[in-house]
Design a binder for these strands. Structure first.
Lengths: 256, 256
DNA sequence: CGCAGTTTTGATGGACCTCAAAGACCGTGG
DNA sequence: CCACGGTCTTTGAGGTCCATCAAAACTGCG
């Protein structure tokens, strides 16, 4: 895994042992989103923070895990590697995403910090108990899991049936949409955005090689679909033209 | 979609409007598995059955859905089709699997009956209300959704990084395991099983063409990894030899 | 500057798709 | 019973997209 890869501009925020849930930056999107104040206080009591360096392994596939929790800041990847080194990313974990599964001891996938990443962690057995006693926690986890399942299935369509060109265009469209959503806008022409993935991570995400990723990006640039300011900064002069390349019928639907 | 395809020997069971939940064949595996008798009685009151013919569409992507429920018998596929006809299966729905998503009105994928398929259906708004008032229902749905998410991610690894040979061998290994599990055995050498999918469905499942599927099966046969009794009946003389072809390091982990 | 990591570009080969046709299987009806 | 059509499956020939191997260009950093 690319050490030192800059996946996202890491927002500067101060999380320490004493931070209160009520002041948490992911308070309204994480597994605790539906909790009331009194429930937050109980979560406060059993949580801890830990920060991982870029490239640091958070969980290895096959590990016994005793802690689970939420991404507070940073980006982590969820992936599986075959014996001969082929690797497929199966999830991109962003702030508020949940890491680990209640009720299961063994991790099925590798989790690796892509940027410096801070997690809000709970002792697994304590969290398991709490979730059974706290319906809003369980309801939120269900909603999040259903969303992730839909995303995974969209992604399967991309992996199984799209061409290299379509895969790249789909990924870029997702990034544009995500950037726009962060600013509470809709995608508009001329938008400039940061590509938060290395070529290697993009390849692992899309089921391609880095050479193919690079070639397709060069081709899109040559055809004027995108403008490369440098390897990581891209401008999209015509969003519809990009969508045309993504192979989706209407508007794609892929929500990242 | 292949009309008349025989996906599974359909077990003969009698489901009629008056069937009680307590006598239901999927009572202990479906979304209602964790429910107590009194909760079953309430489910009884709002459920209905409907049977679909092979090839019949149950839901189309984009539809507004007003009913959701469980597969009682038969097999259905969950898939998405691109504008130019490329199709990717993203789920194989077997008895006890849940169809539809509480809290979302629009269906994101096509659901098609592969065999004659009977569903136990609930009016969506009624079920939404009931799930909020019935923790065991919600807990079971969460567990099922987490399992499906893990399966989807394993599948992504297959779609993104495995060769045609490995894809076929992986699928066959899954089928062998599933058949063995139905008889509460572990896979053993010499096992014979029914391939419940047409070549077309296998291709849609694996992200291949039917020709490639057929060629790889022929090659596995020529090499003695499998013995074809006819196009749908396969014998596996050496299960480990099959697993060797699947590309997984240890035992695969794919649970179907 | 020199080094290591990342990205780009080029040349080549192979895995899989596409197009095409023949064979196998199955129910139907003469 | 066999001919017939429809569907599914297999096999073949050829082409293409993408992986592989290789090397150069670029970037950041000590």
């Amino acid at each position: 895994m690319a050490r030192g890869a800059i996946f996202l501009a890491v927002s500067i925020l101060k999380i320490d042992r004493n931070s209160r849930c009520s002041a948490c930056p992911i308070r309204h999107r994480a597994v605790c989103a539906y909790c009331e104040d009194d429930e937050l206080i109980r979560l406060d009591a059993i949580k801890s923070y830990r920060t991982y360096a870029p490239g640091e392994s958070i969980v290895m596939a096959g590990d016994q895990v005793d802690k689970i929790g939420s991404i507070v800041s940073g980006v982590a990847t969820l992936s599986r590697t075959l014996a001969d080194g082929r690797r497929q990313m199966v999830g991109l974990l962003l702030p508020s995403d949940f890491v680990g599964r209640p009720g299961r001891a063994e991790a099925p996938f590798d989790v690796v910090a892509a940027t410096e990443t801070t997690l809000c962690l709970f002792q697994k057995d304590q969290f398991d108990k709490m979730i059974k006693a706290t319906p809003p926690l369980e309801r939120r986890l269900l909603d999040m899991t259903l969303d992730e399942l839909d995303s995974a299935r969209e992604w399967m369509l991309l992996l199984g049936r799209k061409t290299a060109r379509e895969k790249i265009a789909s990924l870029l469209a997702i990034m544009v949409r995500r950037d726009a959503a962060l600013n509470k806008e809709t995608p508009r022409d001329g938008m400039r955005f940061v590509l938060p993935l290395t070529r290697e991570a993009m390849a692992d995400y899309l089921g391609l090689t880095i050479e193919t990723v690079s070639r397709q990006i060069s081709a899109l640039k040559k055809e004027g679909v995108i403008i490369l300011e440098d390897a990581r900064h891209i401008r999209v002069p015509d969003f519809v033209k990009l969508l045309d390349q993504a192979g989706d019928d209407a508007d794609g639907g892929f929500i990242a």
